[in-house]
Amino acid sequence: MKDAATRDAYGQALVELGADDPRIVVLDAGVSDSSRSKKFGDKYPDRFFNMGIAEADMVCTAAGLATTGKIPFATGFACFLLGRTMDQILVSVAYSNTNVKLVGTHTGLAVGEDGPSAQMIVDMAYMRAMPNMIVVQPADWEETVQATRALIDYEGPAYFRLGRPKVKGIFDSSYKFEIGKGRVVKKGSDLVIFATGIMVQESLVAMEKLAKENINVTLVNISTIKPIDREIITELATSHGAVITAEDHNYIGGLGDAVGEVLLDQQISVPFKRVAVNDQFAETGTGPELFEKYGLSANHIAQAVKNTLKLK
């Protein structure tokens, strides 16, 4: 198990997978050193297109490349990769159903000091709302590497949500990532947490605290936010009788809503709380400071678990 940022795992995976697959091409919007796509560019310069600070042009260029049988990974800071290109993604990628992988790094409050204009907290809402689009957010190094490979095998538009800070290694090579499948990380009984991305690590810290108070919860890693794993949510929400979701994203439109929609559709009425950004812009500060102040830290998850259990 390796402690590293998911963006680092992505950069490494591209280099390895690019060796045997000439269909893989990578585009970046002038931030390839930060997004780690530069590693691919250094190794395979002919298949790397740095489009400069021009995200709209990059997304449509990627769509054009896809029509020639290439598998383009259009990479950039999530804020601008998606924020500037909703129309381009809607028409040239989602509606045209081109095989473009949009890779947004530097997501959520975890970005830290660059401030709210660089902290992407609405991207899952944007992308979940688009027909034909899937949304994948890996939790650690191993899952990122496996998910990169899975996105190459998957034909169709996809959004890959990656993070800036180092996260703990959670899975070893026995882990099997599959698009659309949630995975139990730790088994308990009192309540189930559905977490995604960096919040899997944060939830594990919360669970250690809770275990000391004899509260044992189940943790499920939801790395495909769309299509969401309806079976695992239905089964574990019913068997545990209380649900928490945890995501570094606004509470509107992300994992919490995706899980809540399943509960509504299945008529499952259980205590349910969302740990997420409370529909507000944050501020500057380190990632951990922001997590504490804006309700995403392990402390907040532990408190949310206790509050939810009181409703059970």
Binding site: D46, M58, V59, C60, T61, G64, L65, T67, T68
Partner: peptide, 13 residues
């Protein structure tokens, strides 16, 4: 932009 992407792709091929 799309046309440019196609042109880059055919050149790669």
């Amino acid at each position: 932009s799309v046309a440019h992407g196609i042109a880059l792709g055919t050149k790669l091929d």
